[in-house]
Design a binder for these strands. Structure first.
Lengths: 345, 345
DNA sequence: CTGAAAGCGCTTACAG
DNA sequence: CTGAAAGCGCTTACAG
């Protein structure tokens, strides 16, 4: 601390410009000058002050990632992947969580940390299109997740309708007919789960069935406790389902805990499919069949998009992209029972 | 972007100093001046450039948190708590993961991001004392976790020996006599798990038993797969244990998966105790008894310590503190069976 | 209560 | 190939 370019320049007997050239490996520096400067740098233990560099260049090399909560392993995995992808581009990651609160999501999206971050990756739950449109020239933004917006920003998300149909089809092919949907939120149709719920309806119709809306269970959130509560309500009724498609793995795992407590067999009595493919599902007592989004691809695409937008210098995207990473079905014991290796390890 | 103090000053017809005073809510500003400036700020949509402020003040308000991996829910929870604690002090958090690699831990501890961060909270796995001593005047540092160092830095960690003894005593009180320890690392005695292993030995001796070192199972890491692999090795022997104390919950959950696959009953055949109290354990088919460190306290203490050290301006701590947050036993089905409510929810 | 000026540590045209 | 100087946008003694 305290050693500046000027100190190095003085010691090496050159101007700060020359030192700067060496530090930034500018090619046209006379070898002996470079060596002299390098020695001064080493002697003094000089390290460039990045803040100053940032101020000058107008970029910080920091991108922010805002997710609802790190406590959901899906988002922890995603954050890990984003950190790694960002480091490929020499960027570091400032992490924040919104708890899925619209107020916090708005705050983050408005870039209350502008000037510190070059760009933002946001996975919103309750944010509305109008909030995005009101965003006054903040840093470039890339959106993640199931919510859809009519706003000038890139959006990375799997095809939720198609993925949900795949999950439900799997259950139908196993002979299940009363398939519940766990995790529709107590809110408007534009909330998350909307698309997965639509997939549920479409696939049931496609198989010649009629969606039973009483099998759609609303929840407060998407945690284990929400899954457990919804499953309890479902089982307390007279006509239980023979399968459950959950909004995500946490909801599915909460539901499975209740099934186990009640002594019901998975999948014989009730089969379960989740969504996200968190590792916990592999090691559950009955391992969990789930839809596996390609998290690495999602993170990489998000960071690539963002870095590109940052380079372009525009706050909004004139031609916003909609990118669909892959999502595949991973079959485990919760739908086909023991018999094949369960952990997938 | 592009609106500076100067622009606001011009529009309001005052000097930049006055605008700065208003922005920083300096008390002695004539009300009508303040109002005029505020109007200019609003009209222009001015937002202070934090990078410039940082350069000037020499502080950024950013602290870094480096954990082995976010994929372990314990660290995800800890990160969440650190972010919240930091925001209490108006600091934001740069997150990094080390994968428990010494090289990466050294890099982080040497502050390769110095000048961007005001301080660092590091949870090391393989870092050595010499690495810390070689640290050349980086930003203030607070250490977390089971590793112990003889270095001038504050250290926040529960009393691992005492906590392990509590866990083992619980098993002994339930009548268990052959208690295995899962998760000693294939490395030196100074590695993590050392203290918990010592607690295991001490408590067995205290109960009048003799620690059976063949029941100490080494693992490569502390993940579910490590627990599953170790449990498999243990069961393939002729003399299985009647209880397992795992280094952490992930190892315990991996072990439980294997027990379930083999058709063994938990806790009747083999009881299991973990460490960390991650939510997953509450919702496992057999809910997991575990040691519950006070993560919120750990995060708060770490941030408080760090902020204090930052304020003091010293890179190292003349009188490093050793702080011991609480850690309590949480009893669930994996030791006492079904019969009481299991999820603890 | 407010202004003019220096300076935080860099990078970058502009000269030479 | 290298130097002198301006400027990124703030804050802070120093005056008045």
């Amino acid at each position: 601390m305290g050693v500046s370019l000027k100190d190095v320049a003085q010691r090496a007997g050159v101007s700060v410009k020359t030192v700067s050239n060496v530090v930034n490996s500018y090619p046209h520096v006379k070898p002996e000058t470079r060596e002299r400067v390098q020695r001064a740098i080493d002697d003094l233990g000089y390290r460039p002050n990045l803040t100053a560099r940032h101020l000058r260049k107008g970029r910080t090399g920091i991108i922010a990632l805002a997710v609802p909560e790190l406590g959901n392993p899906y988002f922890a995995d995603l954050a890990t992947a984003v950190i790694d992808a960002a480091s490929q581009h020499d960027h570091i990651v400032l992490l924040d969580h919104t708890a899925g609160l619209r107020e916090k999501e708005v705050l983050v999206s408005q870039g209350f940390r502008s000037h510190i971050i070059d760009g933002l990756i946001l996975s919103p739950i309750r944010l509305e299109t109008e909030d995005l449109l009101a965003r006054a020239g903040g840093p470039p933004l890339v959106l993640l997740g199931e919510r859809e917006y009519d706003a000038p920003y890139d959006h990375i998300a799997i095809d939720n309708v198609a993925a949900a149909r795949t999950a439900v089809r799997h259950l139908i092919e196993l002979g299940k007919r009363r398939i519940a949907f766990l995790g529709a939120r107590h809110e408007s149709l534009r909330q998350p789960a909307h698309l997965r719920l639509r997939g549920w309806r479409e696939e049931i119709r496609a198989s010649g069935g009629v969606p039973d809306e009483s099998l759609v269970l609303a929840t407060d959130g998407y945690d284990r406790r929400d899954g457990a509560a919804a499953m309890t309500r479902l089982l307390d009724r007279t006509d239980p389902p023979d399968a459950v498609f959950a909004y995500n793995d946490l909801v599915a795992l909460g539901a499975m805990r209740v099934l186990t407590e009640r002594g019901l067999r998975i999948p014989e009595d009730i089969a379960v499919v989740g969504f996200d493919d968190i590792e916990e599902g592999q090691y559950a007592a009955v391992s969990l069949t789930t839809m596996s989004p390609d998290k690495t691809a999602i993170a990489r695409l998000a960071v690539d998009c963002l870095v590109e937008r940052i380079a372009s210098g525009a706050s909004t995207a004139a031609f916003p992209r909609r990118i669909l990473p892959g999502c595949t079905l991973t079959v485990r014991e919760s739908t086909i029972g023991r018999g094949r290796p369960g952990t997938g390890a």
